[in-house]
């Protein structure tokens, strides 16, 4: 069973009378344990792909399957529940809530899942520990008191906290310096080693080379889909 499967998925926009395909007739599936990098120049449709995979956007035609569940007929409420339980998002600009502690930012998806307060906070603390942040030392900090790398770690903890089938990361290192980039990539690799499935959108070859599989996009179509030889491996930086 694939974790995620796209069948004949297209997304088109009506631009001043002209139909523009952001994604055209894409077939792809993501298996458990995959670490996929979706790559391509800007405007190639990789961001749209990410939104379609994350159930943030609905395809014009085709079907997106999440663990054998076809999603095109689902209600908004059911989609929200699937996003909450099956998918963890990591964004380029972190998207943490301002003036909210790191711990509460991580616990947010659990609150939407109606998990009790005490359990939500203890699971959030465990997730913070997993990404290498001490909940005692950093848990109460607000995002503006954390470095970029630390903020992205909080965001990854937030993506992990519901134990999703899949982590979707959109340019996760786009706003980070090279040291923090390596840290985050090492974290992704170690999470993947533990069995977490990751799909990462990036336009940087260096970042892509850390994945096991690279899917290249051009003009809304898959140009190539291949396993990575000579994969870059980094030890996770000491916590």
């Amino acid at each position: 069973m694939s974790l995620l499967k796209l069948e004949g998925v297209s997304k088109c926009y009506d631009m001043a009378g002209e139909v523009f395909y952001a994604v055209k007739d894409v077939h792809v599936s993501v298996e458990p344990g995959d670490f996929v990098a979706i790559m391509g120049p800007s405007g190639s449709g990789k961001s749209t792909m990410m939104h379609l995979m994350g159930l943030l956007d609905t395809p014009t035609t085709g079907e997106v399957w999440i663990e054998d569940i076809p999603t095109s007929k689902l209600l908004e409420r059911e989609l929200a529940m699937l996003r909450n339980q099956k998918i963890g998002f990591v964004f380029q600009s972190f998207n943490l809530l301002p003036r909210t502690s790191a711990l509460e930012n991580v616990a947010l998806p659990l609150w939407y899942a109606k998990v009790s307060d005490g359990e939500a906070l203890s699971r959030a603390a465990a997730a913070l520990r997993r990404v290498g942040l001490d909940p005692e030392a950093k848990g109460a900090n607000h995002p503006n008191q954390l470095s970029g790398g630390q903020q992205q770690r909080v965001a990854i903890a937030r993506a992990l906290v519901t134990a999703p089938s899949l982590i979707l990361a959109d340019e996760p290192t786009g706003n980070l310096d090279s040291k923090a980039t390596d840290d985050i990539l090492a974290l992704f690799q170690s999470l993947n080693d533990e069995g977490t499935t990751i799909v990462m959108v990036t336009h940087e070859e260096y970042v892509g080379k850390h994945a096991k599989r690279i899917i290249r996009f051009r003009d809304g179509r898959i140009e190539s889909d291949e396993q990575v030889e000579n994969r870059l491996r980094r030890m996770e930086v000491a916590q």
């Binding site: 409420r77 529940m81 996003r83």
Partner: peptide, 16 residues
Amino acid sequence: TREIGLRKALGATRSA
């Protein structure tokens, strides 16, 4: 708007 988008991505329903 961005915050609302984020909350929805994290699983907030319309009613939430």
